[in-house]
Design a protein around this nucleic acid. Structure first.
Length: 924
RNA sequence: GGGCGCAUAGCUCAGUCGGUAGAGCGCACCCCUGAUAAGGGUGAGGUCAUUGGUUCGAAUCCAAUUGUGCCCA
């Protein structure tokens, strides 16, 4: 009976391999618990590290909300890196961190207070922010752990920890000490209702109806005589914010535009404006009898002094590249106190920065006759009236446009110039030294270097102050007597010391006198009464200090780090801020290399956004498919660029996961009676097996190279090729007869097992950084005494030069071409119903001399190569192979299922082939 | 508007010095039922985003355009 013979075959055994169905969502938490119990992270750190330390410094995510796909991509790849470095023999500590201070949390917490109808003072607000941040640290930490990421999760770094906050203060102190810090004016968007500066993210652009006016500035002084001979020349400007006219300090023209003077006889006046807008402007102001009398390049006008239309002061012509030639008059009213571009121009021309408006949007005494008026609408109205009275208003109408509004109270915003703190980027050749440091850093991908170089080369000084509550207070004091600033090494250290003990809230809860050393005197006037600065530091200053607060304080870490690994937006963000602080305080870059990854887009390549409804959360993927599948996805994509994610894409990754898993499962199932003591030495392996090892060697080298260059997708592609094509479709398929039908201890079977063991062992360890749970399961099944208790404590496989064999690779790739030819013929025969299946086929092959030499050495194994029962090889073909597929003669062997002529040749076993009869005799 | 990228088969990726476009998956059809919610075979699939240029010859080099992403204004 056939059933009886099945027991005599060496079929793969389920008890010795992994289950076909992974059921990852259920299994993964068990593995994670297992690792927690053995304290895997500690064991990884304690393992001998012959190559020394490899420190990846974690960029802190913001502690707000669930983790999104960008976080998942980032953290998984970091985890892969610290794991493979560990496997390579490095000690690779991972201290995760969070960025806690900042506007989003402050705003969320403020909203909560508002909804509850409560008002909070600064200390109460900050306490609530701290609690909020902590809650999301816990939520995100749990999600990162579910992704399978290992690290010192019990001792992460938090930028709101007292020690960290003290470090930030000290870093600021060092910058002061070295002369990097200064105070200056800067235009900020300001909400007159909330009385606060707004960050760009808090600004909403909405339609607004504004007053639109054309007005003229009379000529005051033209020392170079550029406009000589013209009657009553005026320059014409257009603005939609009449209230900024009192702050006007200049009129700007574009150096390259053509400007024209038009004479209007009916008004006995000449008007200067850009050529392309003469017609539109004259039409807008209702002048018909004009004629062009003169042309100028914008740059020729520089320095001509016009007179402010309302005040007795000059408004000179300045040059600016942002002037447009398709709107207004091509002459820009410049109020350095009320606009960012105007401010920059004002600085360039050393104009007075006048901002005669207070925090409530009311004109101050500096606005002269307008003092006390709200800028809108009263101020606008009065100014327009006054312009009319003095005769310089040329037109007034209303105008619809997008205008910045406060996201909270919806008020129209204004630009207001305020005093801010800055870090100089050019002090002490800082910029040059930063650029040199960038040159020394390794950037992956190399294009990254262009981006960071351009950023650093062009970046302005760093405005490090924010008018917010939830942050580290700028540790400066102001003299109550003379308003002089006090920032000395002693005062900064006094602040740092108290923050280190009690947290940065003390800056708000304690008076200056309890923080400063007794007897502190103002260096300007000698007075002893001080008040504290109320601004906080930009959160980029916090995160830019992580290398000081973390790398320098944790004994397991090093300064500088070996690697920063973040999204490409961090060129402007964390890479930049870390480098600025690193160069300024340590004279060197805090990272030796930087890898950047792209953003996660949806299946159509569009950005994921909540409003579009195309977001997918990692926790949902983990729940449905498992973390290992999500991790495998990160291996499948070329992440230096933006990557795509969709359910469809994940489906393909799930398929890939199954195929890899099944390949491993099959090999393990066939190793149930294998142990190292039955290994077959390399030189006694059949040629096919040595070919397989040559392929393994090739794969191994490709994979290690891919890991080293962080091009994990190359490893993924190579692994899929190996598993699907070389193993599943070819080697393992060919091997089945040898494995199943041979005597268990047949050297040929032991040889196959030897190769499968090496194969499994190598693939398992190479995939371990990605498929952390699955490969741990494989590892437990690997028949190997004295192995490390976790694959994550093993070593990466090393290339085996003795496996290398170029000649075998060539030989077998040609033999597989022959296999392809035969396969096509078998398929043909199948389709023509000449044979039902390959097992009943015999291939009659005539070969040219080349093919004959290639195939004849295989002898009886030739049909195995073709996956059929019989093959007859003869020389004599003109070229290539001539193949005829015919039904195999003989009977199907009841044991090995090959159709062979010698079935029944052994009288004792009439339904067995000769080979199977012999095997049965031997084992019984 | 500016800076830095990207665009090759349905999907994920290769493509060396410029020389007739490749892989795996998926798909279709077939086989197997001793890897079985597996496994094998065969096959179809591309105007290399578009346009122009350089060249004997362009996926590849140059320019512009379109789409898309990050950063900035």
């Amino acid at each position: 009976m056939a059933q009886d013979y099945k027991q005599t075959l060496n079929l793969p055994k389920d008890d010795f391999t992994i289950p076909m169905r992974a059921n990852l969502p259920e299994q993964e938490p068990k593995w994670q618990q297992h690792w927690n119990q053995m304290d895997l992270y500690r064991l990884m750190q304690e393992k001998a590290a012959p190559k020394g330390a490899f420190v990846l410094h974690d960029g802190p995510p913001y502690s707000n909300g669930d983790i999104h796909m960008g976080h998942a991509l980032n953290k998984v790849l970091k985890d892969v890196i610290i794991r493979f470095r560990r496997l390579q023999g490095y000690r690779s500590p991972y201290v995760p961190g969070w960025d806690n201070h900042g506007m989003p949390i402050e705003n969320a917490v403020s909203q909560q207070f508002i909804q509850q109808g409560k008002t909070a003072d600064r200390v109460a607000l900050r306490e609530a922010c701290r609690a909020y941040a902590k809650r999301f640290v816990d939520i995100q930490r749990e999600q990162f752990r579910q992704l399978g990421c290992v690290g010192d999760w019990d001792r992460p770094y938090l930028t709101m920890e007292y020690g960290f906050e003290a470090c930030i203060v000290r870093v600021f102190g060092e910058l002061v000490q070295k002369g990097y810090i200064y105070r200056d004016m800067r235009a900020v968007l300001w909400c007159p209702t909330c009385e606060t500066a707004l960050a760009e993210a808090e600004v909403e652009y909405e339609e607004k109806t504004s007053d639109s006016i054309y007005l003229r500035f009379p000529l005051l002084e033209d020392s170079k005589g550029v406009l000589s001979g013209l009657q009553n020349p005026y320059i014409v400007i257009w603005t939609t914010t009449p209230w900024t006219i009192p702050a006007n300090m200049a009129v700007a023209v574009h150096p390259d535009f053509n400007y024209q003077v038009v004479q209007v006889d009916s008004q006995n006046a000449c008007y200067l404006l850009v050529d392309s807008l003469v017609e539109a402007t004259m039409s807008a102001v209702g002048i018909e009898d004009y004629r062009v009398v003169k042309n100028f390049k914008g740059r020729e006008l520089e320095g001509i002094q016009f007179k402010h239309p309302l005040f007795e002061r000059a408004s000179p012509v300045v040059l600016a590249n942002y002037v447009l030639s398709d709107e207004g008059t091509g002459v820009v009213h410049t109020a350095p106190g009320h606009g960012a571009e105007d401010f920059a121009t004002g600085k360039r021309y050393n104009l007075t920065i006048l901002s005669p408006v207070d925090g409530k949007g009311v004109f101050t005494d500096e606005a002269g006759e307008f003092a006390g008026l709200k800028i809108m609408p009263e101020g606008n109205k009065r100014i327009i009236e006054r312009l009319q009275e003095v005769g310089h208003l040329m037109k007034h109408e209303t105008y619809q446009h997008n205008y910045p509004h406060c996201w909270r109270c919806d008020s129209p915003l204004m630009f207001r110039t305020t005093v801010q703190w800055f870090m100089s980027i050019d002090h002490d050749l800082h910029r040059e030294r930063s650029l040199e440091a960038i040159d020394q850093v390794k950037w992956f991908p190399e294009e990254s270097r262009n981006r960071i170089t351009a950023m650093v080369r062009n970046r302005p000084d760093w405005c490090i102050s924010r008018q917010r509550a939830w942050g580290v207070g700028i540790p400066a004091f102001f003299c109550e007597n003379c308003e002089g600033a006090l920032v000395t090494p002693e005062s900064v250290e006094a602040v740092a010391a108290v923050i280190e003990r009690e947290g940065s809230d003390v800056w708000y809860s304690k008076p200056a006198s309890e923080i400063l050393p007794p007897g502190t005197q103002c260096s300007h006037c000698g007075a002893g009464e001080f008040r504290k600065e109320t601004d906080v530091l930009d959160v980029w200053f916090d995160s830019g200090s992580t290398h000081r607060a973390v790398l320098e304080t944790r004994p397991e870490l090093t300064w500088p780090s070996d690697l920063y690994f973040e999204g490409s937006d961090q060129h402007r963000g964390w890479f930049n801020s870390s480098l600025m602080i690193g160069i300024a305080t340590k004279g060197a870059s805090p990272f030796r290399s930087v890898v950047t990854h792209g953003f996660v887009l949806d299946g159509d390549g569009r950005k994921m956004s909540k409003s579009e409804g195309n977001t997918i959360l990692p926790k949902d993927i983990m729940r449905a498919s498992g973390a290992d599948v999500l991790r495998l996805w990160t291996a499948s994509v070329e992440y230096f660029e933006d990557v795509r994610y969709s359910d469809e894409i994940l489906k393909y990754v799930v398929d890939a996961y199954r195929q890899i898993r099944n390949t491993m499962r099959f090999m393990l199932g066939n190793l149930y009676d294998f142990m190292p003591d039955v290994r077959v030495p390399y030189d006694q392996l059949p040629e096919l097996d040595r070919w397989m090892l040559a392929r393994l060697q090739e794969f191994l080298k490709t994979s290690l190279r891919a890991y080293d260059s962080y091009e994990f997708h190359r490893f993924y592609q190579a692994a899929r090729q190996l598993c699907n094509v070389d193993l599943s479709a070819f080697y393992l398929d060919v091997l089945k007869d040898r494995l199943y039908a041979s005597a268990p201890n047949d050297p040929a079977r032991r040889a196959a097992q030897t190769v499968m063991f090496d194969m499994t062992s190598v693939i398992c360890r190479l995939f371990a950084p990605f498929l952390v749970h699955t490969m741990e399961e494989v590892w437990t099944r690997l028949p190997m005494p004295d192995k490390p208790q976790s694959v994550h404590l093993a070593d990466f496989p090393e290339p085996q030069p003795q496996w290398e064999n170029e000649a075998l690779l060539n030989l077998w790739s040609q033999r597989r071409e022959a296999r392809d030819i035969v396969n096509r013929k078998v398929e043909e025969a199948k389709n023509e119903k000449r044979i039902p299946n390959p097992q009943s086929a015999c291939a009659k092959i005539a070969a040219d001399p080349t093919y004959y030499d290639l195939l004849s050495p295989l002898g009886d194994d030739l049909p195995r190569l073709f996956g059929i029962s019989q093959a007859e090889l003869t020389p004599g073909a003109q070229s290539g192979l001539e193949v005829e597929v015919v039904p195999a003669e003989g009977v199907k062997c009841a044991r090995c299922w090959l159709v062979l002529p010698d079935v029944g040749s052994s009288p004792a076993f009439p339904d067995l082939c000769g080979r199977c009869a012999k095997v049965i005799e031997a084992i019984s």
